[in-house]
Write a protein that binds this DNA or RNA. Structure first.
Lengths: 137, 137
DNA sequence: GTAGCTGCAAATTCTTTGCAGTTGT
DNA sequence: ACAACTGCAAAGAATTTGCAGCTAC
């Protein structure tokens, strides 16, 4: 049976406050402000448990480690910033994509990731137009 | 400068013959029939080099380890069958998705994966209609 | 009281890297 | 010849697991 521990609460809260999908390590960093001794293994165990429980959803972007977000938003997609690499929710959807599949194939679902610059990074670029010497990451 | 070695040739051939995106381990298994002593590190090094070189493309599906396929088709997407789990190329594209992003965000690229039933598995379902006891995964 | 939870460290899995010997050009 | 390449084993990074002590109920 599921217990309510300081650790579990801190993990849930960290994700709720972030408002965007977090990596296990990001969850640890955020939750440690509430529970200093928190270990990464506990974070992994709780993320898995909460996901199984239906409280969290696993967000798997191509080539990225899994992130976790609160369930609650229904069908939606994600945007990853090419600069800061953070991931954001996109509450829009191209809609019916069934016509994209080859003949004879049936489309039941889809997964879409947008890439570009988030508003913060876009603003930074606008203010300081790129010089050829600018290199990030 | 790029050399032509037995190993590199075997790796390239393995992927060419497969005709679908392969995992590094699958590449190793296939290429070892040509070069028995082939090591996994060499496979990784060559996959990376060939991808950098523009010969191979990395196919990263959500929650899956990276696969590699021959370049040749330009921008395209993938379809994964919910039944047989095989991955197919989709040579269609929803096009401009920039309006889906939140205000202030700039869309530069996108990644799309369709899920459903491939023609083979769809045909199988049509012939043998699902019973309520049928459960997958 | 006790089953579930936790932190730590060791184990796993996938991928990368250091090194000394091998090979293509 | 000589830089690129290779196999092996060790190193990394992300995630899982074993275990003994802790804690919510």
């Amino acid at each position: 049976m599921e217990r309510s521990t300081r650790q579990r609460t801190a993990i849930r809260d960290a994700i709720a406050e972030a408002g965007r999908p977090l990596l296990p390590q990001e969850v640890l960093d955020a939750a440690q402000s509430q529970v200093p001794g928190l270990g990464i293994a506990t974070v992994y165990r709780n993320l898995k448990a909460l996901a199984l429980d239906g409280e969290l959803r696993t967000v798997e972007l191509p080539g990225e480690n899994p992130r976790y977000e609160l369930v609650g938003h229904g069908h939606h997609h994600h945007f990853q910033c090419n600069v800061c690499e953070r991931v954001f929710d996109v509450h829009a959807c191209p809609g019916d994509l069934s016509k994209l599949a080859p003949r004879g194939f049936t489309v039941e679902d889809h997964d879409l990731t947008l890439y570009g610059k988030c508003s913060d990074c876009q603003r930074a670029v606008d203010k300081a137009p790129a010089r050829s010497s600018d290199k990030r990451l």
